[in-house]
Amino acid sequence: MRLGAAKLVLAVAILAACSGNNLDTEELSHTSQESESGHSHSHDDTAASDYSLDVPFDSESIDVKSSFQIEQGKVVGGIQRVRAQMGEVVALAVESDTPEILHLHGYDLVATIEPGISAVLVFEASIPGIFEMELENAGLLIAKVEIR
């Protein structure tokens, strides 16, 4: 996994600044995603089917929005279940006091988290089911995303 994780860190491009109309204090990190099978063989560079959307967290086109905060290895407020309908645009923001990699399984969206810079995953709900979002290194479950 070390190889894969290292590559993911490289693959994630962090945007230095946000668009002008984003008045949130937090900077948004750009999301990147790769299919699990895509990085199963680090030497191959196949295009992954892309679920991620390049939309800021406060955009009006987002239907379902949730923010999470991780402090000292715990999810503030406990594990939650995010519910969305197929076709809706979902945005999940995660802030953590330690550097981490955020991963939404199934959709396989990945983003890096630095202390003070929260990661945001924005995607269109297009696969039904329950998907776990977790901190990859700590193996900490943050939320279950239920899409029907």
């Binding site: 996994m1 699990e36 399984h105 199934g106 396989d108 696969i127 039904p128 089911g129 329950i130 998907f131 776990e132 977790e134 990859e136 193996g139 479950l141 279950k144 239920e146 029907r148």
Partner: peptide
């Protein structure tokens, strides 16, 4: 198993 460490069972069934 909801999720085995990293990745087995990435898509859970709806209730």
């Amino acid at each position: 198993m909801t999720l085995l460490a990293h990745g087995i069972g990435a898509r859970g069934d709806l209730p």
